[in-house]
Design a binder for these strands. Sequence first.
DNA 1: ACCTGAACACCGTTCAAGT
DNA 2: ACCTGAACACCGTTCAAGT
Lengths: 258, 258
Amino acid sequence: MRRISADPDSPAGLGSAAAPTTPLNNRAPLDRRKILAAAVEVIDEDGLKQFTMRKLGMKLGVEAMAIYRYVHGREDLLNGIVEHVIDDLYGDPDVHMSTGNWQDYLVRVSHGVRRIALAHPQVFPLIATRPPAAPWVRPPLRSLRWMESFLDTLKTCGFSDAAAVAAYRSFSSFLLGHLLLEVSAQGADTSPIEQQDPEDPPPSDMSSYPLLQRLESELSQDHSAEEFEDSLETLLERLDRLNPRQAGEGPAPSTHVN
Amino acid sequence: MRRISADPDSPAGLGSAAAPTTPLNNRAPLDRRKILAAAVEVIDEDGLKQFTMRKLGMKLGVEAMAIYRYVHGREDLLNGIVEHVIDDLYGDPDVHMSTGNWQDYLVRVSHGVRRIALAHPQVFPLIATRPPAAPWVRPPLRSLRWMESFLDTLKTCGFSDAAAVAAYRSFSSFLLGHLLLEVSAQGADTSPIEQQDPEDPPPSDMSSYPLLQRLESELSQDHSAEEFEDSLETLLERLDRLNPRQAGEGPAPSTHVN
DNA sequence: ACCTGAACACCGTTCAAGT
DNA sequence: ACCTGAACACCGTTCAAGT
C-alpha cells in the first residue's frame, strides 16, 4: 500500500518547536503534492478544526503565504487534500487488481476505503462532506477515475446501465454511513464539555434513561469491523439480485480480508 | 418571513418573576432558543461556511458579543443547533405516536429525519459530523432521549438487548449514509471551481471516461426518494430476522408515507 | 523563480463600561 | 439585568518587495 502521509521520519511531537527539522528537502522548492501530504499530516495530528494555513506553513518550514503559489486558496487546498487521499488509494494495486469478479472488486474497494478512513480519521469527515463537483459524484469515491472504474467493472460483469448506477449509489451510501460513524466514534471523547443552562435537564444524568443505563456496556462494545463485513455481505447479495447475468457462481465470497 | 420560531407562548405559567413590561418595541431580551432558531435560519440562508457570530448577531438585531451571555462560545452554539433541530423532531407527535409496531416506528423516524435533512440541507452535515458526546451516541439521532425511545420501542417488541443495539447501529448508519449523500448532492453546483495544474488531466474533459459520458443521463437522474424507501424496506427485513419474537405479522409494511 | 514583510478585512472572545 | 465599545489574538489573502 502506498503511503499517504509522507515523512514517517518526521518527529512525533513537534508542538510549537520552531525547527521544521526536515533537513534534506527543505531546500527543494515546495510543490503541490508536498503541500497536500503535509496538510494531511497536520490534520491527522491536530484535527481539522485546528488546521490553519499558518500552521501548514510552519510544518513546511515556510511562511503561510508561500503556499498560495501552489494552491488557489483554502478551499482549493481542502479539495486537493481529499483528491490526494482518494487518488492515492486508486493507485493501490491490491485494490485494483482485476479478477473479473465484481464482488471481489467491491470488497477490495471497501476495505481500501475503510483503511484510509481509519488511517486518517480526522480527514475522513472532510472526504465525506466536501461539496461534490457534480451531484452524481458521490463521496467517498469522489473522483471520475473511481466512478469510471467502478462502473466499468460492473458493466463487464453483465450489469445493465441502470443496475450499475443503482449499485454505485447503494455502495457509496453504505460506505459513507458506516465509515463516518466509525471514525466519529473514534474521536468521541475529544468533544468539548457542554454546559447546560439550569432550566434544562442536568448534563449527564442517566436516571431518566433506564434502558441506556442497562445497555451501556452493550452499547460501548465496538464491533465495527464485523458490522462492516456483515453489511457489506448483505449489500453484495442485494446487488447480486440486480445483475441479470446470474453466472451461478454460488454465494458471495466472504468479505473478510485474508 | 422573518420569524422562525413562532413563539406564540408568552412566558406564561412561571409568573413568579414579574415580567418587566416589554413595550411594543420588540426588544424582548434574547434567549437561548431564539438564538438557536435564528442560527438555523442563517445557516439555511448563507451556508455553514458563512455562518459567523457577527452575522448571527446582526440577524438578532444585536451585537455579536451579546450572544455570549446565552451560549458558551461557538462550539457550544454549534452543538446547541444540532440539539435544537433534532429535539424539535423528537417533539413531533406524528413521529412519536405509538402503534406497538417497531417497523412503523422506524419508518416514521426515518421519514421525520429525512424531512429535517431536506428542510435544512445546510445544517445536516453539521448534524452528521459533530463529535458525539459518547462513542455510542450516533448521528443523526444524537440525543439520549432518542436512543432511549428507539431502544425502548424495540425491546417492547421483543428484541433482545444485543439485537436492539445491533438494530440501532444499522439504522443510524443507513440514515446517515443516505441523507448525507442526498443533501450533499443538492448543494453540488455551489462548489468552487477548481483549477488543476497543467500536468494533471484537464479539468472537465470527459474523453477519458467513456462510461461516465455514456451514463451521464442515468447518473443525473434523481431517484433518492425511491432509493431511500427501498433501502429502508431492505433494512427492516434484515432487522426482522434479528427479532426472535416472530409475531407472524406478515411482511414489513410499505415504507411510503401516506 | 521562489519566498517574505507588511498590510487588510474579518474572525472569536473577553471585559470593563454603559443603560 | 442585559447589551455595547474597545481591545486582543488569530485568521485567510494580496501584493509589492526582497533574494
